[in-house]
Nucleic acid binder design. Structure first.
Length: 417
RNA sequence: CGGGGCGUCGUAUACCGGUAGUACGCUUGGUUUGGGACCAAGUAGACCCAGUUCGAUUCUGGGCGCCCCGACCA
C-alpha cells in the first residue's frame, strides 16, 4: 500500500485525554480512533493488526478441532431467563434495549446461552460428541468505568470458544489442549515469555479457572509468580489453603502486575442443564453435556503488545502481527531516479507476495523516519541516492536498529513468506 | 457507584469580566532535502442551556462529555 493513499496521518502529540500508553501510541500512529469512552474504531493499519492477531488465534484453535461460526450480537432474553442470567444481579454489565413492539432485547455480553440452545438442535447422541465451537464476535459490556485505552472497552471483539464433552476426562483433555494452544498463540503474537497460566477463581462454576496473564505494569490484576516452578496465582485465590494444595509457600512467590489476555474455565453442566443440552449415552440415558469456555480478546492482546514492546520512538510490532512486513521508505530529495528505483522495489516486493507499506510521500527524511519508527513495522528498507550509489538497499530492523545493506535477491529471500 | 480533575482552532497549549494569543497541522509561494527544515502570506476555535452583568469564553447553577483513584469486572 502506498502511504500517500492512506487516509490516516501520524501525530506528534497524543490527545490530552489519553493517558494509557497503548492508546497514546495507537492514536498517534493512526491505528485507532476513539469514538467515546470505551469504544474505539479500528483504522486501516489497526484493522490489519487486529486481523493478524485473529488469524493467529484462528489457526491455533482450528488446529485443536475448533469449528468457527458467527452468532448474532442481538440476544433474546428468553434463553437468559432459563439460566437465570437475565437479571442485572447476575450480570451487571448488560446493555439491554427494546424492540418496537416493546419486547426486550439484550446486546451480547457472552454467548453460552444462545450457543448451548443452538446445539440442542444438532446434538442428541453420544456419537455427536465431542464438539468445539468458536467465533470472533462483538461483545457489549456496560462497564461502570472504561479505562486503559483499548484494554477495557464497552464494545470489543472476543474470540469465544466453547467445548462440549461427554465425560470429565474428555473435557479435561481438551482443556489442557486448549491451554497449550493458548501458549502457542501468545508466543506467536510476541508476549509468550511474559505470559503465565494463572490459577484464578472459578466463579460459580468450579473451584478454579485458568487465566493467562501477561506481566506488565499497565495491568489491572495482581498475580503471584513462583520463581522456579512454573506456577502463578491470582491475588483473588492467593490463600494459604490454595498454596498448600499446590505444595508451595508464600515466600517463594513474587508479586507482579499483569494483564488478563485470556481465560479458560470449566462450566460443568450448568448451561447444558438449564437449556436442555443433553445426549443419549450408550445405554440410552439422557445426560447433560459437560461444557467449558475459553476467551481471548484480540484488541486487548493488541494493546498488551503495544504496552510491552514499544520504545521511546514508538511501536515495535512482532512480525506475526505487524500491519505490513516491510516499510519501504524513499528519501528522494527531488531526485526522480530515486523515485523510479523505489517504485521498482515496491513492485518487486508486491510481485513476491511481501506485504509492504511504501512511504512515497513527498516529505523530508527526518519526518519519514520518525513516522516509520512510530508506526513500528519490523523491517525498514530505505532507498536514497546514498543507497543507490552503493547499488544496494538499506535494511533496518525496528526492534534494535541494526542496519545492513542488501540486494534485491536478499530482500526477497529474507522477507518472503 | 463514591471521590478528584478537566472541557479554548483538526492537535497541543496560553491569557482574560471588555479585540482570544502561540506552536504543530492544513493552503499558497519561495528556499531546502538522511532524523519531525526555514522564510513569507493565509486558514481555523471558547461543549450545551440558563442565571448574574451594560457586557460572560471567563463568575454561578444545571446538563452533557472526557480522564484519574477506588469499588466493580458475570
Amino acid at each position: 500500500m502506498r502511504q500517500s493513499h492512506l487516509f490516516t496521518k501520524t501525530r506528534r502529540e497524543a490527545p490530552k485525554d489519553e493517558v494509557a500508553k497503548n492508546a497514546q501510541l495507537l492514536i498517534r500512529a493512526g491505528y485507532i480512533h476513539k469514538e467515546m469512552a470505551g469504544a474505539y474504531s479500528f483504522l486501516p493499519l489497526g484493522l490489519r493488526v487486529r486481523d493478524n492477531i485473529i488469524r493467529v488465534i484462528r489457526e491455533e484453535i482450528n488446529a485443536i478441532g475448533g469449528q468457527e461460526i458467527k452468532m448474532t450480537a442481538l440476544q433474546s432474553p428468553a434463553l437468559w431467563k432459563k439460566s437465570g442470567r437475565w437479571e442485572d444481579g447476575a450480570i451487571d454489565v448488560w446493555f439491554k434495549t427494546q424492540l418496537k413492539d416493546g419486547g426486550e432485547l439484550g446486546l451480547a455480553t457472552t454467548h453460552e446461552e444462545p450457543l448451548t440452545s443452538l446445539l440442542t438442535e444438532y446434538i442428541q447422541s453420544y456419537k455427536d460428541l465431542p464438539k468445539y465451537v468458536y467465533q470472533f464476535q462483538l461483545k457489549f459490556r456496560n462497564e461502570l468505568r472504561a479505562k486503559s485505552g483499548i484494554m477495557r472497552c464497552r464494545e470489543f471483539v472476543m474470540k469465544d470458544l466453547y467445548s462440549f464433552n461427554r465425560t470429565e476426562e474428555e473435557f479435561r483433555e481438551f482443556y489442557e489442549k486448549c491451554a497449550e494452544a493458548y501458549k502457542k498463540i501468545f508466543a506467536r503474537v510476541g508476549i509468550g515469555e511474559k505470559t503465565h497460566r494463572v490459577f484464578a477463581s472459578g466463579g460459580s462454576f468450579s473451584k478454579f479457572s485458568d487465566e493467562f496473564q501477561t506481566i506488565c505494569d499497565a495491568g489491572e490484576d495482581i498475580i503471584y509468580v513462583h520463581k522456579e516452578k512454573n506456577i502463578a496465582v491470582n491475588k483473588e485465590v492467593y490463600t494459604d489453603e490454595v498454596l498448600k494444595d499446590l505444595g508451595v509457600s508464600k515466600d517463594e512467590f513474587e508479586e507482579k502486575k499483569a494483564i488478563e489476555v485470556g481465560n479458560i474455565f470449566p462450566l460443568g453442566t450448568k448451561y447444558s442443564e438449564a437449556l436442555g443440552l443433553t445426549y443419549k449415552d450408550e445405554k440410552g440415558v439422557d445426560t447433560p453435556v459437560i461444557m467449558g469456555s475459553y476467551g481471548i480478546g484480540p484488541g486487548r492482546v493488541m494493546g498488551t503488545v503495544v504496552e510491552l514492546l514499544s520504545d521511546a520512538k514508538g511501536i515495535v510490532w512482532p512480525k506475526e502481527i505487524a500491519p505490513f512486513a516491510v516499510h519501504l521508505v524513499s528519501i528522494t530529495g527531488g531526485n526522480q531516479d530515486v523515485v523510479a528505483e523505489a517504485d521498482r522495489l515496491y513492485e518487486l516486493l508486491r510481485e513476491n507476495g511481501i506485504e509492504v507499506l511504501y512511504d512515497d510521500r513527498d516529505a523530508r527524511a527526518g519526518e519519514k523516519f520518525a513516522d516509520s519508527d512510530l508506526i513500528g513495522i519490523p523491517t525498514r528498507l530505505v532507498v536514497s541516492e546514498k543507497s543507490m550509489s552503493q547499488g544496494s538497499i538499506e535494511c533496518t530492523a525496528r526492534v534494535d536498529g541494526t542496519t545492513t545493506m542488501i540486494g534485491d535477491s536478499d530482500i526477497v529471500a529474507r522477507l518472503s513468506k
